[in-house]
Simulated scan of single mutants.
Amino acid sequence: MTAQDAPVAPLQDQMGVGKIVAELRALRTASQKSRYRNGVLPALPSREETRAIVAGLVSTLYPRHFGPPELTPNSVDGFLTYVLDKTLRSLEEQIRRELKLNAHASETPTIDDAARATEITAAFAQSLPKVRALLDSDIRAAFKGDPAARTHDEIIFCYPGVAAVIRHRLAHQLYILGAPMLARIIAEIAHSETGIDIHPGAEVDESFFIDHGTGVVIGETARIGKHVRLYQAVTLGAKRFETDEAGALIKGKARHPVLEDDVVVYAGATILGRITIGRGSSIGGNVWLTQSVPPGSNITQAKARSDSFDNGGGI
């Protein structure tokens, strides 16, 4: 028998796949034991199912734009009834999974997960008309604030800032109702689709417009007033993270900016910490701001200085 005729071991044997699988199983088991009571593995919320839920909700908020093309004025209500029934049932299941997951990770069991999931889903459903009203104000703000906008329909179809805010307003309702993980999944789906990162905990009032939008970051405890406009690459972030005596991060404290009504923040500006930007203020491009400013402020970068050097001066 020649070397060419010798049997070849399966690829998985050559790569040591069996050993790799065993090592991964041991690591996975140890991790799960540290996170869940009694080693019981609860079902996880589904990212793909959540994506489908978001698509269903968006189509019920704006059915002419994101519903089926054959919709007519007479068939819209029937479409909404069908989609809401299907979507809310799926949402209820994902919320139940999150609640059960939290219960398994907690030292103390929570109340009945199914009943609480139904309660949250019902409250969320009741909030949808309010969400639509807020979104209509956002779309009007975009039309008013962007000279390139030709129609409201163009804004709904095409503007990434509006797409991100639609999803944020849905996620925020889930966040405040008690489903923060599901809210965060929705926020990250929006982030991946638009390049705009809004934590679902951020409170955003009416007539909010993000122009262009790529690279915008808005932290969990940010508070944004009425008629606020942000441009691309704006950060509303935390200045520092406080720790306890053991060095662990203290979570839940207000650590992001407050923007009062009628504030404009231009491209690349970074605003950090629990500071207040007073009503009607304008924050210029690329400004780095860590102190509160009074209403009506106009904050810009320091002017560039031009110096000339002769005969080796400045070396």
Rank of each mutant, 00 (worst) to 15 (best):
T194Q: 00
G215I: 07
G314C: 05
G178F: 03
T290S: 13
T243I: 10
L249Y: 07
H256L: 06
R240P: 03
R223L: 15
T300E: 00
R96I: 05
E245I: 06
A171L: 14
H65P: 04
T110D: 13
V228N: 03
V54T: 11
S192T: 14
L41Y: 07
V258R: 00
K253A: 10
P257A: 04
T121E: 00
S137H: 05
D307N: 05
P42W: 03
L27C: 05
L84G: 14
N286K: 03
D136C: 11
I189T: 10
I210M: 06
A246L: 06
F143S: 00
G161N: 02
I275D: 01
A267D: 01
L44P: 09
T118W: 02
Y62Q: 11
H168E: 12
G278S: 08
I53P: 10
A233F: 05
A114M: 10
A149R: 05
S106W: 03
G313Y: 04
A304G: 14
R132G: 00
Q12W: 09
P129Q: 10
R37D: 01
S192Q: 13
F79S: 12
F241N: 15
T60Q: 09
K253I: 14
E206P: 00
G195I: 11
G195Y: 03
R229Q: 13
I176S: 04
N38E: 11
A122D: 15
E193I: 07
K33N: 13
V265Y: 01
I156W: 02
R169I: 10
F241L: 15
T151C: 05
V265R: 01
Y231S: 00
E107Q: 15
Q173S: 05
T81K: 11
L91M: 09
L24G: 13
S90P: 00
R116W: 05
P7Q: 14
P10L: 09
G215E: 03
D244Q: 07
Q4P: 11
L128M: 08
Q232H: 14
T29Y: 04
D211N: 10
A115W: 10
